[in-house]
Design a protein around this nucleic acid. Sequence first.
DNA 1: TTGCGAATTGATAGCGCTAACACGTAGAAT
DNA 2: ATTCTACGTGTTAGCGCTATCAATTCGCAA
Lengths: 332, 332
Amino acid sequence: MHEVAKHVGVSPMTVSRVLNGDANVKPDMRQRVQAAIKELGYSPNQAARNLARASTVHIGLLYSNPSAAYLNELLVGVLEQSSQAGCQILLEKCGTRNERSVIEKLLRDGVDGILLPPPLSDSRVALEALRSARIPFISIATGRPDGEGLSVRINDFEAAAEMTRLLLSLGHRDIGFIVGAANQTASAQRQAGFVAALKEAGIEARSEWIKQGTFSYRSGLLAAEELFTAAEHPTAIFASNDDMAAAAVAVAHRRQLEVPKDLTIVGFDDTPLATTIWPALTTVRQPVAAMARKAIELLLEEIRLRSTGRTLEPLQHFLNFSLVVRESSAKV
Amino acid sequence: MHEVAKHVGVSPMTVSRVLNGDANVKPDMRQRVQAAIKELGYSPNQAARNLARASTVHIGLLYSNPSAAYLNELLVGVLEQSSQAGCQILLEKCGTRNERSVIEKLLRDGVDGILLPPPLSDSRVALEALRSARIPFISIATGRPDGEGLSVRINDFEAAAEMTRLLLSLGHRDIGFIVGAANQTASAQRQAGFVAALKEAGIEARSEWIKQGTFSYRSGLLAAEELFTAAEHPTAIFASNDDMAAAAVAVAHRRQLEVPKDLTIVGFDDTPLATTIWPALTTVRQPVAAMARKAIELLLEEIRLRSTGRTLEPLQHFLNFSLVVRESSAKV
DNA sequence: TTGCGAATTGATAGCGCTAACACGTAGAAT
DNA sequence: ATTCTACGTGTTAGCGCTATCAATTCGCAA
């Protein structure tokens, strides 16, 4: 840092101010310092920053289900960003009954903010506990039901619509849909996107081809079976996540239907499962690692702001999804 | 720290020495300091330690395949231990062709040691690159083919034998086995354990019921199909990992065989997949998070030691596995 | 022109810990 | 008895950064 300061001909303090985005630095000074930083390839020492600030920011990551297919990629993102930002992560596993007590433990451990991946980000109990504790937190991969607070996610509605359009473009007109868990906001949004895209194409969604699931493999098995029980069955099935799509593939196989020759099946999330099974699933990819990084970034900002008495505006940060076409989809 | 020092009536330096396991501290002094540490609930400030040491230890984690089913839990363990030990983790993804260049990148980035989960820990190229770079590293979940160096793992031989004994105790005598990837040491060990346990029970393994796989779902599909092509087929299938076991379940279903009523199928690893599919797999649980923690611990020790010119003895650290009985296994 | 508050920059003092060396003190070697 | 050595402990001086306040400059109204 001193090198940079000397190079520009100012005191280290000024460099520090530039690094921390302090308001009172002349614009051209800031420019010069930043140029020098880049030129010398300087990067600040997190250990020293934390020490000087006399406190390290601790962020709690509350993860719950083993089916949190996100977890893997989420952790990659968290690990990268946290080591870069120099904050500490406290991992805490949480069941469906003990949200409150786990959150309290995290608070006792002195975390400064909390990361809330699904399905916790849809848990009223968790949300209420966090709100009443007045601790900064951010939802990942879902909006808050109340539309308040901070969240980082993709546009589930638009993603489902996009996937539906892909199915339509392959010539499918009879499309079955397996809905996600009823209590998660993403489920409703994906369903709405599906229905909207059909309508766009002048097709009315058939309610007997829309089956409720819970995001679990088991529920996918049941839903897919139902889809085949009726006299007519669809030529394509769009499941709201990969687990249920994989289950649909299993059901199809058991009924001697080839995927994708006889039946197209697509999923959502692009979890490892999508490429594990055969045929590999066409699915919607969520940039989970990037979401995690962004979430930490925003959370850190909020934590800093709170310590000065202010607070961040409610904010939904959207990242881009993408369609991943693999072997489970084909033309009619 | 000063509090602790005052409490014992010594200088902070002595406390520091106790914390760092310095050799030259009188045993009773060490005891007293440790008692005080516990009593006051003191825990050292990592930021300050790193700053004072004038360098943070950086550990590279080289992960490769998306089928590295371990990754998830591995990351949990890594995250916990690294934040506790105050070292930084550099994640680096690596294909099957570019091990060398990725390792070189890590070295350029100045990592002090490398964590090598499977299947990289069996890659001759990677091993050779690391050895010639003379950088400390540790294999996770596999021993080194050459038996040298550091590794943390379970006893694959014994685990496979245990699982086989379970199958035998359920009355199965005709057991098929799907071998893992030929180039991974764990594959051979699991197979050997299987064969040994059979022999123990006075049963000779039938070579036509031992099929080669590659740990991939796809290979499991093929292997299981072959197992059913023969005139006679086994009443139980032991796959060398969960992906292949899941594939075997799929094949069984396609042939209208109920699992576990008509056929018992068991896996290995206890990855998320084991509980995702239905029926949930009976499998061998590896304590991957604990392995990761232990690996970091050992690696850190080695890094410290190296800086003083010495080096750790070759060491294979074994952790305990356990059998997880779920729905995919039943009596004959 | 003078004065005064706001904006901008600099100087100083640690944050909590550990290297490196300094200083005893007891036992071994002479 | 004297020197030497190793051991056990204390002292000093930062590690790289930021909080805090002091110093300087600037803009602008009186």
